[in-house]
Design a protein around this nucleic acid. Sequence first.
DNA 1: CGACCGATCGTCT
DNA 2: GACGATCGGTCGA
Length: 186
Amino acid sequence: MIARELLGKIIITNIDGITTSGRIVETEAYNGSTDKASHAYAGRRTNRTEPMYASAATAYVYLCYGMHHLFNIVTNQKDIPHAILIRAVEPLQGMEDMLIRTGKRKLDYTLTKGPGNVSKAMGINKLHTGLNLLSNTIFISEDDYKIDETEIASSPRIGVAYAGDDALLAYRFFIKGNPFVSAKPR
DNA sequence: CGACCGATCGTCT
DNA sequence: GACGATCGGTCGA
């Protein structure tokens, strides 16, 4: 499962002349047309969800609650709308700029905890939806950091109670004990 | 701590 | 016209 493999990888953004990067510590998988929690459930295909139907390594960014831009990585072949929501990263580069973007005063674990904060800190917004992630604006990289399987935990996804039985699926993955991992499900 | 609540607007029905 | 793949502040214990 790709949501698991993304843990420990690095997201780098070059936006507005600013470079920021962070290590992925929490993800959620959205399993396309069979997943009631997915925007693409039952093959729903609209202007908003169209990028999810693109091939792997495309960005799907959308506005949530009228104020948060949530960043997803599309993972499958063209026309199969699978995506991974990046829920938290551990900042690596550009913390000063992240603080400015988020309006926070001091560097703490809330800087990039939760999907809304990740996008805000890294400068990702709706304009980036549909963007190819092999571009240099937003891309995924990796370094020597290795995660052992035993460091990975899973749980049901956050905030998807409306999805019925699919809300129970353990499609959320995170690095155990990492302080940037967001709150537990409600 | 936990529970609750308001902000805020694009998207879909 | 209703409703979020959220966040941060407040309130009470």
